[in-house]
């Protein structure tokens, strides 16, 4: 039985965070640059045409040619070429109180370095002003070993050269953390509303009538809406499967486990489910299974309402009947 998909008054949404600490190897030029920073030195590199690039690069951006092996100490002071006053710093900004991002041409350099300038007060910022670096107390070998720059009249900070020459910095860790509010759209919201009631709500293609579960908002074959809602059974047939014996990020199921592509009765596309309550040596294509739900008190807008699938006492379907869904 199908009916037009009811309009939903609410569209679900939830926070989604993308978070990873990337480890980046540096290569010879940036390794030299960051190793020097760790020791309180700012080094540029010379291009074949004699320009001094700060930050240094392996190549001359104007030509693509490799830069020379010649590093040049620049600064530490320099001139602000342009600046932007950040009156309300963002959560991830390098300084928590109002500050400036600035392009700073260090003495002896031919290009300007982007960094933060801390004057506390916008009226103290000006293009052409001279600034000098403030160094991190515990340098780690990275661009943020320079905490920021300050007006030069506040005094030049001298950095003690370390007693021992340490190993060059070979890599940096750059955490990337992006926050989103994710909303899956209309069709997925209807599906999740169904799951919250312990039901599998699929949708039928407007063109072919074939039933999609979970619905994704379109019949992908024909690029048309799936505007009729169809409740499909919690029983189905395994059309193919795998036994996973290797750990995977984001999956907490105990190893080894079986995931199966299951064709629910009444659907025309298979559905990935965990298969349990069955010895792994018995799992097979064609076996009949049913969904096992978590306790109804725990039902939420979530695929996790389905605990797993388990075998049922019905004869297997022959492969010829399910071949086209595999």
């Amino acid at each position: 039985m199908s009916h037009p998909t009811p309009e939903t008054d609410v569209i679900l949404s939830a926070p989604h965070v993308l978070e990873y600490d990337y480890r980046r190897s540096l290569g010879p030029v940036l390794s030299h640059f960051f190793s020097a920073l760790r020791e309180g030195q700012i080094h540029g590199v010379k291009t074949k045409s004699g320009r001094v690039l700060v930050p240094p690069a392996e190549y001359d951006p104007e030509t693509g040619e490799s830069t020379t092996d010649e590093f040049v100490a620049v600064g530490p002071g320099g001139v602000v070429e342009s600046w932007a006053w950040v009156g309300t710093p963002r959560k991830n900004h390098p300084i928590a109180h109002p500050f400036a991002f600035a392009l700073i041409k260090l003495d002896g350099a031919d290009t300007a370095l982007l960094h933060a300038v801390d004057t506390r007060d916008e009226s103290l910022m000006a293009s052409g002003m001279r600034v000098t670096p403030r160094w991190a107390a515990t340098p780690e070998g990275g661009i943020t070993d320079l905490c920021c720059f300050v007006p030069e009249d506040q005094g030049v900070q001298t950095v003690e050269a370390p007693d021992e020459v340490s190993e060059p910095t070979q890599s940096i860790v750059t955490p990337v953390n992006v926050e989103y509010v994710y909303s899956p759209g209309k069709a997925a919201t209807r599906y999740l509303q169904g799951l919250k009631q312990g039901k599998f709500l699929g949708q039928a293609s407007d063109s072919s009538g074939l039933v999609y579960i979970p619905p994704r908002g379109a019949c992908p074959r024909d690029g048309v809406p799936t505007s009729r809602e169809v409740e499909v059974s919690g029983k189905g047939t395994v059309v193919t499967l795998t036994i996973v014996r290797v750990p995977s990020a984001n999956i907490t199921v105990d190893l080894p486990y079986c995931t199966a592509n299951i064709l629910l009765d009444g659907a025309d596309i298979s559905f990935t489910g965990l298969l349990q309550e069955c010895p792994l040596e018995d799992v097979r294509i064609g076996m009949r299974v049913e969904a096992v739900w978590v306790d109804s008190s725990e039902w939420d807008y979530s695929s996790e309402n389905i605990k797993y699938f388990r075998p049922i006492d019905e004869p297997d379907l022959p492969f010829s009947e399910i071949k086209e869904y595999c």
């Binding site: 679900l12 949404s13 939830a14 926070p15 989604h16 993308l18 994710y182 899956p184 997925a188 999740l192 059309v239 193919t240 499967l241 795998t242 996973v244 290797v246 995977s248 990020a249 984001n250 999956i251 199921v253 995931t259 199966a260 592509n261 990935t272 489910g273 965990l274 294509i285 807008y301 979530s302 695929s303 996790e304 389905i306 595999c326």
Partner: peptide, 24 residues
């Protein structure tokens, strides 16, 4: 296999996706 809200990650990377097709 970045986990999105409301969903459950069951497919274990590319191997988890392609192994059932090989079995097919």
């Amino acid at each position: 296999s970045i986990k999105l809200p409301f969903s459950q990650t069951l497919v274990a990377g590319a191997g988890g996706f392609f192994a059932p097709l090989i079995r097919g």
